[in-house]
Write a protein that binds this DNA or RNA. Structure first.
Lengths: 154, 154
DNA sequence: ATTGAAATTTACTCTGA
DNA sequence: TCAGAGTAAATTTCAAT
């Protein structure tokens, strides 16, 4: 990955529907050259896909929370992520260092729905949990800004 | 928002580059009707934009962490989100209930870079912090599945 | 790896129902 | 609010450097 690829990723990260024409203009290459680079970035998995950025309030899911979970029996097989994967309210699942084992980000319509979700999580994953309610979101999912890698000194 | 709009949002949430042709087929409407609905969803802010989903490891940012921060002086004006906004390593900033005031999600290249970032956060926002390192990410940012709203009983 | 151009598909607009 | 037709613009492929 060098400069131009990083510029492409940054641009598509900010606007995933940029046309190849616009993208080509921005990075100073021909349309077909950027086309080829984008395809390669997709194939290499650097760009994993494209998604609409939605307003969860407008969608009817105004309540976001982080749920830290920890197995009741730390010796039991730890397959919590798979057991929880089918719950659509769980947007993300991170395995973390520290007191807890996993951190979940969840989106629900109301406190009552959060209560129901937590009950389901408890019953399914054999876990205890600690929940942090999100009050507001100053910003979220800002576009990736690929770092400049350390210079090769061969 | 009714059924068809929810289907559109779900589809574009999973694949933000779906053509209107494919989208129309999926929701069973003409291309121009879907086009019109998508434009309206964008104008109403339900769809806030589109973004490439990137692999942060491949991008050179393999280390993700959650940083909980809390002002050293709780009486001081609380403008931490704005003060921190210019740091590109901070992907998201949530105002939260509980012991801490804000929860940040950050992406960096290495532990040393995380150390540097935490120093900058401390010096700029007048805060203490608690950091949770992400070891792995079973899943993240799964497509939004708009809920079925409670039926109108007029 | 890059370009320019041809061929195809898609986006977008407008008209009418 | 939807469908259809027409135009403009984009994507995609290809030959050549």
């Amino acid at each position: 990955m060098e400069q131009i690829d990083r510029a492409i990723v940054a641009a598509l990260s900010a606007d995933g529907r940029l046309s190849f024409t616009d993208l080509a203009e921005r990075v100073g290459l021909s349309v077909s050259a950027v086309h080829q680079r984008v395809r390669r970035l997709e194939q290499r998995g650097v760009i994993r896909g494209y998604a609409a950025v939605v307003d969860y309030e407008a969608l009817g899911l105004p309540l976001t929370a982080f749920v830290a979970i920890r197995p009741t029996d730390p010796a039991a097989p730890d397959d919590a992520p798979e057991r929880l994967a089918h719950l659509p309210e769980i947007e993300s699942c991170y395995s973390v260092a520290g007191e807890d084992f996993y951190l979940l980000k969840v989106r629900v319509a109301s406190p009552v729905d959060l209560e129901g979700l937590l009950q389901r999580i408890r019953s399914m994953a054999g876990v205890t949990h600690r929940t942090t309610i999100v009050l507001s979101t100053p910003y979220e999912g800002r576009p990736a800004r690929p770092p400049v890698p350390p210079a090769d000194t061969d």
